[in-house]
Design a protein around this nucleic acid. Sequence first.
DNA 1: TACATTTACGCAACCGATTGTGTTATTTTT
DNA 2: AAAAATAACACAATCGGTTGCGTAAATGTA
Lengths: 346, 346
Amino acid sequence: MKRNKEVTIYDIAKELQVSPTTVSRALNDHNSISKETTRTVKNLARKLGYHPNAIASSLRKNKTNTIGVIISWISRPFIASLISGIEDVANQAGYNVIISQSCDSYEREVTNTKTLYSSRVAGLIASLAMETQKYDHFMQLQRKDIPVVFVDRVSYEMEADRVIIDNFAAGFKATEHLIAMGCQRIAHLGGSQYRNIYKGRQQGYLEALKKYNIPIDESLILYSNLSMEEGYKCAEQLLSLPNPPDAIFAANDSAAVSAIQYAKKAGIRIPDELAIVGFNDDPIASIIDPALTTITHPAFEMGRIAALQVLKLKESKSMVQSETIVLKTDLLIRPSSLRKNKKVLT
Amino acid sequence: MKRNKEVTIYDIAKELQVSPTTVSRALNDHNSISKETTRTVKNLARKLGYHPNAIASSLRKNKTNTIGVIISWISRPFIASLISGIEDVANQAGYNVIISQSCDSYEREVTNTKTLYSSRVAGLIASLAMETQKYDHFMQLQRKDIPVVFVDRVSYEMEADRVIIDNFAAGFKATEHLIAMGCQRIAHLGGSQYRNIYKGRQQGYLEALKKYNIPIDESLILYSNLSMEEGYKCAEQLLSLPNPPDAIFAANDSAAVSAIQYAKKAGIRIPDELAIVGFNDDPIASIIDPALTTITHPAFEMGRIAALQVLKLKESKSMVQSETIVLKTDLLIRPSSLRKNKKVLT
DNA sequence: TACATTTACGCAACCGATTGTGTTATTTTT
DNA sequence: AAAAATAACACAATCGGTTGCGTAAATGTA
């Protein structure tokens, strides 16, 4: 008698002198099984320490209880919240969550997608790697009836549900705020233009400049991976210009915070000489001194909605849909951009 | 002809006029299959877009390619690195990683453990919830031949592999450093004493005081959940004391940073009037002004080692082992504790 | 040439739960 | 009381690989 042999429905069936069918149905509250039997089965199951084998169930039903998630880096605060949101909904619905990081590499994204397919995930939630430009790997999943939902960093080049924020509006708001603060030469630290989020933010920035008749100066727009290091370098470059900017709108908080750090080191007063706005409201945004004005993201909610979309698609059978859900953002004004003699727009 | 029907080894077998057995073995490079056949099978598999069904394989082999992870909160920078380390090793070895958050709740930890068992994870890596005091749920897994490895927040009340840092030494080092900086009334912001990590840090703190003949003042030792909010309140309480401390050693960076924030607001000069040391080296530690002296954690490495232990246990068949691997930490000295006229110990 | 090995592959059971299709009693309907 | 409907359960196939055992052909050995 091996102590570590798992308890199966067959063990329960044998002990109760019924068929495995009955046990299975009883455990699932099938209505063709009497109340009496159901109770007995469940009691014995508990007593024997029975735990259903999800593997076997998945194989037979051709349907797993696992949702796959591919994101860039788990260590980003925004991503962590996103995942929590996904987990929240998924767990409620009885799903597990498999997470894999693309590390912003296209190759890893493809590999991860294949691995998740081998695990026959019930659905996939993906936030694209920085440089991804081909989407075949995702379309393959759809062809196998596995729903794909993009979140935050999405693709418009294939049919799929998308959960995003209004990056354009956010970029516009951020820039408009800087203009209201009296800034006239506003720089922008942007990210990969392959990604909707950075492109949208930049477009919003440009549109705001246009609206207020501020000339666009290409030398004030810098692209990078928006890391701390790059943000620092970009700030250095901008502030060494013969005609330096009086404000920076960065597409994320890391870049914005490191810009503040550079400015402080260079003895530039914030926000009076240089106003700065970031994006995401990472923890560092409220820690840096002066605290960083930034755009708040409903990350947790985005995760929840993405997961709900997966579940919805599973039900509706149609794996390909092209609904785009856009969530609102808020401008969170803090000292890094709040000039004393100016009034805040509301 | 359904386009979304999955390709199986049977499809390949039929087309090649061989048995599914041969296909299976060819795909796994079994040596009883000729080079020739193996090549043919693999080519057709590629051509047909075959992807192995890991579910079916797992069921038969009674062994999944999934490692389960239970941690408190994914949003903690330390945890994120830890997970990355686990993923690194796991993916290399062909494993997936299922992550679930206990949110520091014992009940959720138990539920998650059961769910992961239903998924028949190959192994479990766990960092205990704040208040967990019973470990039956983990022992049940071991009884089912599923290896359990604890990491960071571990249990000594059951046999299991453990991967930790030397919290005692770190706490000692941190406190000794403060003493070297001339501090005489050193407060401690501690966490749940049920957890080895907080207990160890506190013991190290006490030992350092003892070594340098500094009396222990119970009113300077405060316990909390070490959140920003609690850290702030604790700092307020300490600094309102008739005889306030001249240093704080906090068991994590959140508490330390919020203590700095309170001190700044209260007009207390750091580090001269109050020196502060944190723990973890979270991003906020280097962002806060003055930058926070803290203890660095080899989080990624801890994750890697934990995953390696799981793989090792799988091989060795014995699921219960009680090896404790202790990793080193470093004291990272920054301005929050560095008094100008003092020399740094090395 | 006769026998022993080796090579290359097939058969069929198996992993554990699910489900369409029966098959009995038992109850309801007319 | 006979026919119809319902309740409660069992049979056996199925999901897609994996694996112990068996076998025929090819090769090696004496």
